[in-house]
């Protein structure tokens, strides 16, 4: 599904990823943990194709094609979805209009017919119910005036609508209360299937109580320094990153 090999990437001339290698197979859930500034968010943005994140060497293969050759919107249409840490507002553009444009762009890419307004609305109402948001939110501007928790739920709602093959969650759990955390987890779990993969970036073990990962990786100073199963996260919670011999100062230095 996703194969990252020896990836180096920089932001504004500063090298953040330094030889990262990671394999994600269909159906797997991988959690990426690590100290601040270790490159976790950079990884998700490089995967999504954000401008300004420059890959200097290495490769990313996704579903058999070279991901780095694709524009951000093409990656999305191929099934890469990024749930943002800080979702932006688009005033005046209704959630429903935004999502319908998105879904139909993806369907068109797959050679499917555009979804008519009626079927779309029905689907959207169903999905928004899954994240405990009032259907009224569909009419509001994208994230316009939403609380932090509502924005995150809206991200998950979009993910459920677009049904990606690879979902990237960039600290979606940060700043959420326990109820919202459960909603996010339920959303991700609902999406889990043998064909889909999930890459979770998180600071906290607690999310992994709700979304049980197949693998946990520790990212430090731009590369994966340790991989393990679910138990690695518990160990990290208990011991912190110190026992892995990561110089946290060096890691923190990478933050810009």
């Amino acid at each position: 599904m996703l194969s990252i090999k020896n990836l180096y990437a920089q932001v504004e001339g500063k090298e953040i990823l330094k030889g990262l290698t990671l394999d994600v197979k269909p159906g797997e859930v991988h959690a990426i943990m690590g100290p601040n500034g270790s490159g976790k968010s950079t990884l998700t943005h490089v995967l999504a194709g954000r401008e300004g994140y420059e890959v200097t060497s290495g490769s990313i293969e996704f579903g058999g094609s070279d991901l780095l050759e694709l524009e951000p919107e093409e990656r999305a249409r191929e099934g890469v979805f990024l749930a943002f840490q800080y979702p932006v507002e688009i005033p005046g553009v209704s959630n429903i209009q935004f999502l319908r444009t998105a879904l139909n762009s993806i369907r068109k890419h797959r050679g499917e017919e555009e979804m008519d307004a009626g079927s779309f609305l029905k689907l959207a109402r169903q999905k928004i119910g899954m994240v405990n948001l009032d259907p009224e939110f569909l009419k509001r501007g994208v994230n316009e005036g939403f609380s932090g928790g509502e924005k995150k739920r809206n991200e998950i709602m979009q993910m459920l609508m677009l049904e990606p093959r690879l979902a990237l969650l960039d600290e979606t759990d940060s700043g959420l209360d326990i109820d919202a955390l459960q909603v996010v987890a339920n959303g991700v779990n609902a999406l889990r299937s043998p064909e889909r993969s999930v890459l979770l970036v998180t600071h906290y073990q607690r999310l992994l109580n709700h979304i049980v990962p197949d693998y946990v990786h520790v990212l430090a100073n731009g590369r994966i320094v340790k991989s393990g199963g679910r138990e690695l996260a518990l160990e990290l919670e208990e011991k912190g990153y110190g026992w892995l011999n990561i110089d946290e100062d060096v890691a923190a230095d990478q933050e810009s």
Binding site: P72, F84, F98, S105, G141
Partner: peptide
């Protein structure tokens, strides 16, 4: 750029995105 990237990340091409943002 954040707004544009959000749109692109959802599969919408940039021109369509700008026109959508401006219309909004």
């Amino acid at each position: 750029e954040d707004q544009l990237f959000l749109c692109q990340q959802r599969g919408i091409d940039p021109e369509r995105a700008v026109s959508m943002i401006v219309n909004g």
